[in-house]
Amino acid sequence: MAYDTALLVGVMFTVATYLILQKNFIRILFGFIIFTNAGNLFLLSISGAPRHRRMPILEEGRPVSDYVDPLPQALVLTAIVIGLGLTVYLIMLLYRVILDSKTIDTEKLFQPEEGDE
């Protein structure tokens, strides 16, 4: 039981959620990036603590139980790239928002307009 991982995932999710709940765009963006990382780490933790096992690059004559489980790693690799895609999109979105409304405060941006239906 790799409890250091469990705790780290917990801390990362706490910080990320706290940042995402803020009203400042930049904090939300940072929260989002940390959230992505926390999610990746969570996925990776499923492969179990490595202990004395080896990285999943095959060598002649070793039994498979000598290596760590490669599947979570492959999933996380995909997740990292997708996370990057989303982060970049978010950055561009914020860039556009800043250009358009000159604010980084969600409360100012989402102020409901009167008579809006």
């Binding site: 991982t5 469990a6 705790l7 995932v9 917990g10 990362m12 926390a38």
Partner: peptide, 10 residues
């Protein structure tokens, strides 16, 4: 959220 994530890992 953090506590839930930790518990999920466990």
């Amino acid at each position: 959220m953090g506590g839930m994530a930790t518990l999920l890992v466990v």
